[in-house]
Simulated scan of single mutants.
Amino acid sequence: MSGLVDGRVVVVTGAGRGIGRAHALAFAAEGAKVVVNDIGAGLDGSSTEEHPAEQVVSEIRAAGGEAVVNGDDIADWDGAANLIRTAVDTFGRLDVLVNNAGFLRDRMLVGMSEQEWDDVVRVHLKGHFAPLRHAAAYWRAESKAGRPVDARIVNTSSGAGLQGSIGQGNYAAAKAGIAELTIQAAAELKNYGVTVNAIAPAARTRMTVGAGGAMAEAMAAPEQGFDAMAPENISPLVVWLGSVESSEVTGRVFEVEGGKVTVAEGWRHGPTQDKGDRWDPKELGPVVEKLLAEAAVPEPVYGT
């Protein structure tokens, strides 16, 4: 029986563990050829001697699939270029880029260091942009050369990026940026045959379990029955978004948890009052009060 993504070439970043690993295995199970990217970093981004990408590639090959390891730093410009080149040189093409890699350096904003901010924003936000940029350049060249392109980018935002999360200001800001980058890229790349969507997943990974407290308790595996927090629950939507069936879906952010899929509705034009002239600051108190009374109540920030 043929798979949903038979023959498509897929790059998955941060695919050595957790959700990324689940994505790589799910794509391979549906017939894709997979570039498994991972640098083997620790939860805080520090270097380790582990090689989880090789283990994932071995699993895929043992099941009869095709896969190759890539160990480039996705937030490094040349590393991101080599990641895309690995797919093209190994399998002759690229059809899907799944940006997933990331790590945490949690701290309240008042105590966060410049380095903790820079490192998280670099890996998450630049680590999405750099592979996206090099993949987009490849697809644009293919399109201009007259070769058909039916490509996909799936980014990874977070509930923290959509609603905020106490103690994760660097992570939340980067993930919010990824959500907007998704909308931006979808608009810019549509003429080249590329769709761009994002997911905001909730699953049990090293990052969520390591958070401790109520979050860790909520993420714990059940003793029996459906494990709603298993990383594997996130991948079916990502595989579908990477398939040819999803060609009409772009610029969207989907929240995914267990068996639940939600279309996130972000910034929209809300209630408006137009004076037709410049406001006097003293006039605006009751105006703002009226607008807020008519507006939807914001989602609460995680941890409040």
Rank of each mutant, 00 (worst) to 15 (best):
M1C: 04
D6T: 15
R8Y: 04
R8T: 03
R17V: 13
R17H: 14
R17I: 14
R21F: 06
A22F: 02
H23M: 07
A41P: 00
S46H: 12
T48Y: 08
E50H: 14
H51A: 13
S58I: 00
G65M: 03
E66F: 03
V69L: 09
N70R: 03
N70W: 01
G71Q: 13
D72A: 15
D73I: 09
I74L: 11
D78N: 08
D78Q: 15
G79D: 04
G79S: 02
G79A: 03
N82D: 13
A87R: 04
V88Q: 10
D89P: 01
F91I: 03
L97S: 05
F103M: 06
S113G: 15
E114S: 10
V121A: 07
R122G: 05
H124K: 12
L125M: 11
K126W: 13
F129M: 08
L132I: 09
A135E: 07
A135T: 10
R140W: 09
R140T: 03
A141L: 07
A141D: 14
E142W: 06
K144L: 15
R147T: 13
R147A: 14
P148I: 09
V154F: 03
N155S: 12
G169K: 02
A172W: 01
L181C: 07
T182W: 02
T182K: 04
A185V: 02
A187N: 01
E188P: 00
V194K: 01
V194D: 02
T195W: 00
N197I: 02
I199Y: 05
P201L: 12
A203F: 10
R204G: 14
T205L: 11
A214N: 09
A220H: 03
A221N: 02
D227E: 06
E232W: 01
P236D: 05
V238P: 01
E248Q: 10
V249M: 04
T250R: 08
G251N: 05
F254P: 05
E257M: 14
W267D: 01
G270N: 02
P271T: 05
D277C: 11
D280Y: 11
D280K: 15
L284Q: 09
G285F: 10
E289N: 04
A293Q: 12
A293S: 14
E294M: 13
A296K: 10
P298Y: 04
E299Y: 08
V301N: 02
V301R: 15
